[in-house]
Computed example of a mutant assay.
Amino acid sequence: MTVVPALLLAGALAAGIAPGFGDAVAHAMSEATTAGLVDTSVHWTPPGVGLGLLSTALAVALAAAAVARPGLLAAPGRALPLRRLQSGHIGDYVAWLLVGTTVLGVLALPAVLSG
């Protein structure tokens, strides 16, 4: 159960640390998505590094708060009807995926019809 997240984390770490690995991934993605028409290069920028560190620190802080004080991040009582709609069964996930896709389709329909 932890193999997939571990592989994804290892791949993300390798893409950021190993020289040339990030460029190889970017080149492969460019070939797969744009048939090589767009030349991509991967480089680190100070804002990108800062946002990465900030998001990591925020994720660690929220995880620590959820473990140390579970009631602090609990959903308020007014969210209980929404929580009852999602029981965790696979059918609920499929139903909500269908609802979300339908809502996005309805919202995009005017733009599609207008041209």
Rank of each mutant, 00 (worst) to 15 (best):
A26M: 14
P5L: 05
V49L: 13
A57Q: 03
V3F: 13
A66F: 00
G52K: 02
A75T: 03
S41H: 15
V3Q: 10
R84C: 02
A12N: 10
A6P: 00
P81M: 01
A57C: 09
T45L: 14
V106A: 12
L82K: 01
G91M: 01
V4T: 14
P110S: 12
T45H: 11
V103S: 00
V4A: 13
L82F: 11
L58D: 03
L73C: 08
G88I: 03
T45N: 09
T40F: 15
A10E: 09
I90P: 02
A24N: 08
H43W: 13
A57S: 11
I90W: 11
A10Q: 05
R83D: 02
T40W: 15
L37A: 15
L37T: 15
G100Y: 03
V67F: 07
G88Y: 02
V3E: 13
E31R: 14
A66G: 06
V25E: 02
A74H: 06
L73A: 10
A59W: 04
L13R: 04
V42P: 00
R83G: 03
A26Q: 06
A79Q: 06
L98A: 11
L53M: 11
A59C: 06
L72S: 07
R69V: 11
Q86K: 10
V99Y: 04
L98S: 08
P70R: 05
A64F: 05
G52F: 00
